[in-house]
């Protein structure tokens, strides 16, 4: 067992934020979220944090660990500190803080809805990422016909928005996850998505910091998708003058 210090940002209601420190005994194989839950269970019942699935399928437990956006349920303690070390935990940036580590993800969910991000999709629509993974060549079909349906990779955890410097100053910028959702659906046959992508809060507002891709816990690679979307919009717009 390790003895480590959690330094957690606290904020209730309208009061100013401050840090509280907690000494905890943890198994280094445990995850950062386990330690936070332990603090809540045994040290301070007033601590609030979001969590649900504890294995990176729901996207509830996004926080900043030592300044970097992480899904705390899959971030092992031994990977972010050492025995006797300190872990600083902050709520996500660029969202309103409800209390302590809890932020209101509502703005992101509303944007995902505005771009019609599909909550489930056929296996063959599984997005290929970067230059590494292509969609499966042969998509196995269930005997009833049709295709396997799967939940998308994007967890809607808000981590990409938190890391984005443009989202820091502009809450209206669509941001990485919603733009990635447009790219995954494609512009063909979606004029409303083209209009959103090619607008003031769309792809041109991205300043290519690629912080979204650096922190995405689910290999969505939004930075790459925004660039691909730019290429697509550029091709379409240039085609209109060539004829």
């Amino acid at each position: 067992m390790w003895k480590i210090t959690y330094r957690i940002r606290r904020q209730k209601g309208d009061e100013a934020s401050h840090y509280d420190t907690f000494q905890v005994e943890v198994d280094p194989e445990e995850y950062v979220l386990d330690g936070i839950e332990k603090i809540w269970a045994f040290e301070d019942r007033s601590l609030t944090f979001r969590h649900a699935c504890h294995h990176s399928t729901c996207g509830a437990c996004g926080m900043r660990v030592n300044g970097v956006e992480k899904l705390t349920c899959i971030t092992k303690i031994k990977d972010v500190t050492q025995d006797g070390g300190t872990l600083t935990v902050d709520p996500l940036r660029n969202f309103p803080v409800v209390s302590d580590l809890v932020v209101d993800l509502g703005p992101l969910y509303r944007k995902m809805e505005a771009v019609h991000a599909p909550p489930v999709h056929p296996l063959s629509m599984t997005p290929w990422e970067g230059e590494d993974i292509r969609p499966p060549k042969e998509v196995p079909t269930p005997p009833e016909g049709g295709e396997y349906i799967r939940l998308p990779d994007c967890l809607e955890c808000g981590i990409c928005i938190s890391a984005c410097p443009v989202a820091a100053s502009d809450p209206d910028y669509l941001g990485p996850a919603p733009l990635a959702a447009i790219q995954i659906q494609g512009l063909e046959g979606h004029p409303e998505l083209l209009a959103l992508a090619d607008s003031q809060q769309g792809v041109w507002r991205c300043h290519s910091a690629f912080e979204c891709s650096a922190v995405c816990p689910s290999s969505v690679d939004p930075g790459w998708r925004i660039m691909d979307l730019r290429r697509q919009v550029t091709a379409r717009r240039l085609k209109t003058i060539i004829g």
Binding site: A114, D198, S199, Q200, W204
Partner: peptide, 16 residues
């Protein structure tokens, strides 16, 4: 979140 895109910056200005 408004679902209608804001005008003001589009491809052409970016391209310029």
């Amino acid at each position: 979140m408004q679902s209608t895109p804001k005008s003001g910056e589009n491809f052409w200005l970016w391209f310029l």
